[in-house]
Design a protein around this nucleic acid. Structure first.
Length: 666
DNA sequence: CGTCTCCAGGTTTTT
DNA sequence: CCTGGAGACG
């Protein structure tokens, strides 16, 4: 490739790149060129003649993995197909696809997301005789997650759910399904209990990179440690100030553990920030210095001071939306910032709506990532459920989802009967149903029996079709027509053009499958691989949209690792950030919320706009809200306070907190 | 027995 | 505003 590494990197970055052997810990502050270092490091390793397939780079989100592939492709000038750049979960799913039979599952396993998991728990809780609202299944599912990942143990309180937990896991196994936690837990178990499997992977992979190391969980760390224990060529990159996933078991103390496990590691600190202007960086530094529990580092920048941070207090979320839309237009015009360089960040997914509406009104193209992602929409999930049943008929959760969608007369009583048979034979619902087909006499009436046979035939017909011929998307289109899903939508959603909209989403799914099978990078496109893939894809839908001229709207969590010339931070209000639900417990939660705010601020290169409302609509009710206390932690001389439309002078702005509380008497 | 209609509730962040 | 549940019809 002939890259002049030395001149393209500063001396610290260069160190981080060229020390490619042995354990390396890179502590990289926000905007210090972390991703750049990883990209160049991979390029450097490749230049040393190491084959692509010996390199494994693990990131945290699909977005980050995609970003990384694109950038390495740009740098290398070619597509590196055998390079492994993946999330932990996607990696786990690949390993399981290959070796899950060792653990007694079949290779066509289903992956259950949160919704599937809850559906299963709901059934089991019902069966166990728990009254419908006597049990908070959402909380229970989180407890189970903690137990499974070893993040927590049974307590006097949680013990009551132990039976449910056992039932949950045995049913997963019966359905030949795994949940998200299993994607880490099971590969780890494979490695620990089947040394030959581990050896196989160790033989292939020699160089390891882990991005966002502060966000890895204990199990994920153990997983990578096993793989890399062999060569010790493990490079981890992290920043304790950007640890925002502790609720999911992330543990930045993995950094300490790393130091223990790999005693002769090299430590490299990247503290020069190339991203943000002086004022933005100063604000971020001041804010984060309020956290007690941190390693402490000084980020500095050589770039200009830049403009003040704009803080705008508006009446309600509607005004907030139009303020942001107007400012986007103004900045785009004045500073010639392309739309793709705008990031609008919010704490929760539900906050995107009002901003989206404003963008639509102002004709500003935008895209939202995360949230109710495409693949979780009801209509899309229905069709996916068909595919899942075709791939794995034992998947009861997805079976129940579609056995009577569209309506085919197989209602509650019939299902109860099938369930009864399934329990008796301890087999899946689909098997039980197939048994009914052949049984001479059964308690099921003729008409329903005909429907059952028709359903089974449909599934089997398409199963054979999906696996015998290559045209996946075309086959899916045939299936959708066959079950007359369109007719179902029309009947179900009579008002407005909801049905049409939903059908467009269904078509979107077909297109996604078409894109998948037409992608030349997919050497072996097949239904199993496609299903596994989309289950892990919560974020943005498809391919290379990165060139599109659109404003980016997303949560702070999904903005991690990204940067934008102009950042808008909306809904900076008490109870949103820090979020009410995080405040309940101890101070460490507050610190995490502060880190979240820190991550948000440090996404901005040049322009940072913060907005807060006086009142906000929550669940239909309008509520008075206060400014986030974190705003007080940013030095006032870095901020220009304004009202929507009326610019406010600096003296007026002196005490914006007081003014807020007095209401709108500005 | 299955379906339709009306009513309540809403889960922080992601894989 | 949208999804799921409960109870009324057909």
């Amino acid at each position: 490739m002939g890259i002049d590494f030395k001149n393209l990197l500063n001396s610290k970055q260069y160190d981080a790149v060229r020390n490619y052997e042995g354990p390396v810990l890179i502590l990289a502050g926000a905007g210090s060129g972390k991703t750049r270092v990883i990209i160049y490091r991979i390029a450097f390793i490749l230049e040393k003649g190491i084959p692509q397939k010996a390199i494994m780079a693990v990131t945290f989100t699909n977005k980050a993995a995609r970003e990384m592939s694109i950038r390495i492709r740009e740098l290398a000038g070619r597509h590196l197909r055998n390079l492994t750049i993946s999330t932990f979960h996607a990696l786990g799913s690949k390993i399981l696809r290959k070796s899950i039979h060792i653990l007694g599952y079949r290779p066509n396993f289903s992956i259950y997301d949160q919704q599937d998991k809850l559906a299963l728990l709901k059934d089991l809780a019902h069966e166990a005789g728990h009254k419908h609202d006597s049990i908070d299944l959402y909380a229970v599912s989180q407890i189970f997650s903690g137990i499974k990942t070893g993040h927590s143990t049974w307590t006097a309180f949680t013990e009551q759910y132990e039976d449910l937990y056992k039932a949950y896991n045995s049913h997963l196994k019966l359905y030949n399904a795994v949940d998200f936690d299993d994607l880490i837990v099971l590969p780890l178990r494979l490695f620990q209990e089947h040394k030959d499997v581990l050896a196989e992977y160790q033989k292939q992979f020699k160089y390891f990179l882990v991005d966002e190391f502060q966000d890895t969980s204990l199990l994920q760390y153990q997983f990578i440690k096993l793989l890399a224990g062999h060569t010790k060529n493990l490079c981890v990159v992290g920043d304790d100030d950007q640890s925002i996933y502790s609720w999911r078991g992330a543990n930045y103390e993995n950094i300490l553990q790393f130091e223990k496990d790999f005693p002769h590691f090299q430590e490299i600190k990247l503290e020069q920030n190339y991203r943000s202007t002086g004022k933005i960086l100063l604000a971020a530094n001041q804010l984060i210095s309020n956290n007690k529990n941190r390693k402490g580092k000084k980020l500095w920048t050589g770039t200009e001071d830049g403009e003040l941070i704009q803080f705008c207090i508006v009446e309600n979320e509607k005004e907030e939306g139009s303020y942001i839309a107007e400012q986007v237009k103004a900045i785009k015009l004045k500073h010639k910032v392309p739309l793709s360089q705008f990031g609008v960040l919010v704490r929760t997914n539900s906050l995107t709506r009002s901003i989206e509406e404003a963008f639509i009104t102002y004709h500003i193209p935008y895209k939202v990532s995360g949230g109710m992602s495409f693949f979780q929409r009801k209509e899309v999930k229905d069709i996916i459920a068909y595919l899942r049943i075709i791939a794995n008929p034992d998947d009861d959760v997805n079976f129940l989802r579609i056995v009577n969608v569209p309506k085919r007369g197989i209602g509650r009583k019939s299902i109860e009967y099938i369930t009864h048979i399934a329990t008796e034979k301890s087999c899946s619902l689909f098997s039980a149903m197939s048994a009914i087909r052949h049984a001479a006499d059964s308690e099921i009436n003729k008409k329903i029996k005909t429907e059952i046979i028709e359903f089974i035939n449909t599934i089997e017909y398409y199963k054979q079709k999906f696996f015998s011929r290559k045209k996946l998307a075309e086959t899916l289109r045939g299936l959708i027509d066959h079950i007359d899903y369109w007719g179902y939508l029309v009947q179900e959603y009579k008002k407005g053009n909801t049905a049409k909209w939903k059908y467009m989403n269904v078509e979107g799914l077909v297109n996604s499958l078409a894109d998948y099978e037409d992608d030349p990078d997919n050497l072996d496109p097949n239904l199993y691989a496609y299903l596994n893939r989309i289950t892990l894809l919560t974020q943005d839908d498809n391919q290379d949209e990165e060139n599109e001229e659109k404003v980016n709207l997303m949560t702070i969590h999904s903005a991690k690792g990204l940067e934008f010339t102009a950042v808008f931070l909306a809904g900076v209000e008490e109870s949103i950030i820090p979020h009410v639900r995080s405040m309940s417990e101890d101070e460490s939660n507050r610190e995490e919320e502060r880190r979240l705010f820190y991550v948000a601020i440090t996404r901005a290169k040049k322009h940072l706009y913060i907005t807060a409302c006086r009142q906000r609509r929550k669940k239909g009710k309008v509520e008075e809200v206060q400014i986030s206390p974190f705003m007080e932690e940013i030095p006032k001389d870095l901020i220009n306070v304004c009202e929507h439309e009326d610019e406010v002078t600096q003296e007026d702005a002196e005490d914006y907190f007081k003014k807020m509380r007095l209401g709108k008497g500005l």
